[in-house]
Design a protein around this nucleic acid. Structure first.
Lengths: 167, 167
DNA sequence: ATAAACTTTCAATAATTACTGAAAGTTCGA
DNA sequence: TCGAACTTTCAGTAATTATTGAAAGTTTAT
């Protein structure tokens, strides 16, 4: 496999994975492109490489910056803006985990909390609703805490965690 | 909040969460409905409660069965098929984690492996591609192993894991 | 203050994905 | 073996989501 083929394969796989994870294709592809680039890229270069429009590139770069995954870099003597992504995979996964916790898990926990604390009228169905949503609430909260603790360990958190779990 | 309101809220939240996790709304809603139901439900009851068509119900029930989350139950003396979902949240999360590993993570690992083992021609960009996809490959594999090990611990795996991590 | 160089916004449109409903298929009891 | 009761399939359609591209906005150098 040659460079170009490998690059395309990586970018498109990452792109379709993105869809599956709640971020759109273009966004994931831009991140992938920056991730394997040897230097900061301009919007022009990105749209050309991925064959996507200016508007699309602009919007998705913004989203990536909102996530904290991509940053603007100023290159001395250059008028245009350059973009880079976090290159360290562990740091990258920490940022993603944190964001997903904040954006997706936390709101669900809130709803589960509300639903599981409705007035118990002692009917079968109310009891079941309370019981099941309570269980889900506890589980979700535990997992969220776990993720956040793990992720706060910074350096080598994944390796460390694995060691702890299986020694 | 009354029963009906709580139920609707739970089902619709679960539904939109589903979208975010790569399963569709109807599928997630059917699972949610079964999850808080006090008894097995027929297709008829499901379509009526969620206001979705017969075809949609049928297809999504099938998918849920493929995931191993929902099972057909035969109720003695009844011609129709009844459906139930796994009611234990820990077991449910184990099934989901396993399936996601198999369906999503494993294929990505494979691609990363391929891409990261292209011939190194010693150009900057090839070196960068190899380096970055290798890092991603290692990370993904470690996480996948971690998830699978965790999940194989069966009983109370989540609580146990948390204890191990923070003692 | 102006204009060139660049970025953002957003209405229109395209692409994707989900849903319907009726026809075809299956199962079961008599 | 037949037909009623039920389930599945799938072409057509609806709903949702992503993308384009051109106009409006911004920044910077002179």
């Amino acid at each position: 496999m040659e460079y170009q083929e490998a690059k395309d394969k990586f970018i498109s796989t990452w792109g379709s994975l993105g869809t599956l994870w709640g971020i759109n294709k273009a966004m994931a592809q831009i991140q992938a492109l920056l991730f394997i680039s040897t230097k900061p890229l301009t919007m022009e270069e990105i749209m050309e490489d991925l064959k996507i429009s200016r508007g699309n590139t602009s919007m998705n770069l913004r989203q990536l910056m909102d996530w904290g995954i991509v940053t603007k870099t100023l290159v001395p003597g250059e008028r245009k803006e350059f973009f880079t992504t976090e290159k360290d995979v562990q740091e990258l996964s920490r940022i993603i985990a944190k964001e997903r916790s904040r954006r997706e898990i936390k709101p669900v926990i809130k709803v589960l909390e509300e639903v599981s604390s409705i007035k118990n009228d002692n009917s079968e169905k109310t009891k079941e609703l309370i019981k099941q949503t309570k269980a889900l609430h506890e589980l979700t909260e535990t997992m969220d805490v776990m993720i956040n603790k793990l992720v706060d360990q910074k350096r080598n958190w994944i390796t460390k965690s694995v060691l702890k779990l299986f020694k």
